[in-house]
Design a protein around this nucleic acid. Structure first.
Lengths: 223, 223
DNA sequence: GTCTATACTAGGATAGAC
DNA sequence: GTCTATCCTAGTATAGAC
């Protein structure tokens, strides 16, 4: 091995800036994924930074260099999950389709999101129950607010399609704000029991997603 | 105040044995209720025995006298919740009613159970996600097994009525084992968002329960 | 039966070496 | 940028007084 070549982390002067940022970005994503996995398996409170680090084949130091605190790490995982979901659902919610079909597609997409990004989605559900109210810094509180705003926006997409369907007579005359809870609850419950089977195919996930979409659609349909 | 009268805890020789046991039983129930509340608000891992004790206006000593460990305390709360649910649902599930109506009543009852015993039910949901697999003693593992058995029995009641409805053609041709997940998920999601409003009436809860029962019934109905 | 005092450990977070 | 070493608090659990 040549003594003059750089270590794993190249010297800034030898590397274009954007390349560096890519690496840093990649690094952070790797940490987030490991954290999401740990939070899914043990829950936020029971997860130690050490176990996340070990998962990465590293030590605390690496994590604390990139994230101020365990709470911040959790928030980043949560934000990542919300951004992902909004990005997928927003175009479907905004599409010019009958409420019935639109809701079916949204439910289908959400079920797929949950199954295919399970660790992040599990964290996102833990975020709902999050009990960080006491010990958070004012800075973290504002982060928490923005996460809640994203969640509200997301729920809003479903409320909108429900109201459209009620107005058109496709759906029963129900309270959209109320029924959106069991609707998303049925889908999010996947995070509680679904774990990918060893040799699972996309077809098996599609079947689960179909069943769930049919279930929640039936739940609001007029007959 | 007479000097000869007993303190809060009377001497055994002055009190009939069954009376003593009632007091002990009452004492444990009080601890369980405080623990359930704390576990609901902060989650199992983030709850300290100290905070449960403070809630009781007592100290750790009182709790550790009655329960060996925090895990045992959690298990007792969980068991209490499961016993409660089984007791309510079993007779409905066993009643000689058409599947459609039977499921509606079971869903209604479950929704009411969740709302009216929220702390215990929230713990029961936390139990599903429970990650105690590593650090439990063999004794605790067997307790955990019995809790899982109760949960399976409970879920079984819903699977049975679903299969009856499929056989009779009232429900769609779906996999009962699969659809029971979003069904109970929709109802259990109540533990995530429902909190009794300050001056809440039984009528308001009945309305929520009705909406939920209608939703899950619609989810499986044939059309 | 409940309290106070205390032993003991895990884990969040930081400092400084490399 | 990551590691090692360390500080420090919080919290489980127990012992012994009352």
């Amino acid at each position: 091995m040549a003594l003059t070549t750089s270590a794993a982390t190249p010297h800034p002067l030898q590397t274009p800036a954007h390349r560096l940022e890519e690496n840093a970005e990649q690094n952070r994503r790797e940490i987030l994924a490991a954290a999401a996995l740990a939070f899914m398996e043990q829950g936020y409170a029971a997860t130690s930074i050490d176990t996340v680090a070990i998962r990465l084949g590293a030590t605390k130091g690496r994590i604390y260099y990139h994230y101020r605190s365990k709470a911040d790490l959790f928030f980043e995982v949560h934000r990542e999950a919300m951004l992902m979901n909004l990005e997928v659902i927003r175009p479907i919610a905004g599409s010019d389709t009958a409420a019935k079909e639109r809701l079916r597609r949204m439910a289908l997409a959400h079920a797929h999101l949950v199954m295919e990004h399970l660790p992040f989605q599990r964290v996102s559900v833990q975020g709902v129950e999050m009990h960080l109210t006491g010990s958070t810094t004012p800075e973290q509180r504002s982060t928490l607010q923005s996460l809640i705003a994203m969640r509200d926006e997301y729920e809003g997409f479903f409320i909108d399609v429900l109201e459209a369907g009620i107005a058109s007579g496709d759906f029963r005359e129900l309270s959209a704000r109320m029924v959106v809870k069991p609707l998303l609850g049925a889908l999010n419950w996947l995070t509680m029991w679904y774990r990918p089977a060893p040799g699972e195919t996309a077809g098996m996930r599609a079947q689960i997603a179909d069943q769930h979409a049919a279930f929640v659609l039936g739940g609001v349909l007029n007959r």
